[in-house]
Simulated scan of single mutants.
Amino acid sequence: MGKLYIVGIGPGSKDQRTIKAQEVLQSSNVIIGYNTYLKLIADVLDGKEVIGAKMKEEIFRANTAIEKALEPKNIVSLVSSGDPQVYGMAGLVFDLLARRKLDIDIEVVPGVTAALAAAAKLGSPLSLDFVVISLSDLLIPAGEILHKVTKAAEGDFVIVFYNPINKKLLMDAMEIVSKYRKPNTPVGIVKSAYRDDENIILTTISSWRDYMEDIGMTTTMIIGNSLTYRYKNYMITPRGYERKYEI
């Protein structure tokens, strides 16, 4: 039996991969992933068995990684963008292992998830409690997603939206948030963080619709809470030091 790594490659650029991720990718003899992600790690693919897949072929990728890891001496890397546990491949692989009652040598290698990558480009919007919600309704019903958005908005959490590709669902979600936030609440829109086509926009709840054309699959949106403010090109959520100390 071999070993299976589920590797988070971060937001996309090589310099945002962890040292552990780089070491694992270099030592693997089999690498499996979504074709777009494989292009992002082209520097470690030479001389390896590379198995690519299209969008919506996650089950194929996961099962293939398991089968390859069951073969003797194979070191297999199944890659996810960002972190493999955050809307990535880790959950599916472990679910399949449990359903098939398999026992293999497996390790998750964490990576920089999109929320953290986008937040770093905006300043420090996640310094206080925040919620991450995927707006993809391919697997989760839209009504369930909007219920979560409502609760996050009611709780005054900073809200991070992943996968805002369904424009109607995005509009509905932002309409809910706007009921609990002031019109000038900062909204960060970060497309393709740390990739060649990176685009960073800092706007507000009242004006975010002006940038609808910049929002897609590789976009992460961050909506501030009642404390979040803008200073120059930074989005800042105070941690709370000003409540206890003189700053």
Results as ranks from 00 to 15, higher is better:
K179E: 13
I159S: 10
A120C: 13
A152H: 01
N184C: 02
P164N: 08
A120Q: 12
K182L: 03
G155A: 09
V177A: 01
A119V: 07
K148Q: 09
K191E: 11
E144V: 07
V190M: 01
D156V: 04
K168L: 07
F161C: 00
I189T: 03
P183F: 00
I133Y: 11
S178N: 08
N166P: 15
A152C: 05
D137A: 07
K151V: 11
I159D: 11
L116G: 03
L169Q: 04
K121C: 10
D156W: 03
I165V: 15
N163L: 13
A173Q: 07
F130Q: 09
D129M: 00
L170P: 15
M171V: 13
A152Y: 01
I159R: 09
D129K: 13
L138P: 12
L139P: 06
N184Q: 09
K151G: 03
T185A: 00
H147Q: 12
I145R: 02
K167T: 12
P183R: 00
I176R: 00
N163T: 10
S178D: 07
P125Y: 15
L135P: 08
K168I: 06
T150V: 04
K148T: 04
E154L: 06
P183Y: 00
G143K: 01
L126W: 15
E175T: 07
A118T: 09
V149F: 06
A120K: 10
E144W: 13
I145V: 05
R181W: 07
E144L: 01
D137E: 10
K179S: 06
N184P: 02
H147L: 03
V131K: 13
Y180M: 04
A142R: 09
N163H: 13
K151C: 05
I140F: 12
V187I: 05
L126Q: 08
K148L: 02
V149H: 05
L126P: 10
P164A: 04
L170Y: 15
F130K: 07
L135Y: 03
V187K: 02
N166C: 07
M171N: 15
V132S: 13
K148Y: 01
A119P: 04
M171R: 14
V149Q: 05
G155F: 06
G123D: 08
V177F: 00
F161V: 03
I159M: 10
S127T: 11
K151F: 05
E175D: 11
P183K: 03
D129P: 07
N184R: 02
H147S: 10
A119S: 14
V160G: 11
Y180H: 14
I145F: 07
V158I: 03
T150C: 02
F161A: 05
N163C: 04
I133F: 09
P186R: 04
V187H: 00
Y162C: 12
P164D: 07
I165C: 14
A142I: 00
P164T: 08
I145N: 05
D129R: 11
K182R: 10
L122W: 13
I133W: 09
D137R: 00
L138Q: 14
F157G: 02
A173L: 08
S127L: 11
T185H: 01
A117T: 08
G123H: 12
A152K: 00
K121A: 08
L139W: 12
V190W: 14
K151A: 10
H147I: 06
K168F: 11
P141S: 06
V160I: 09
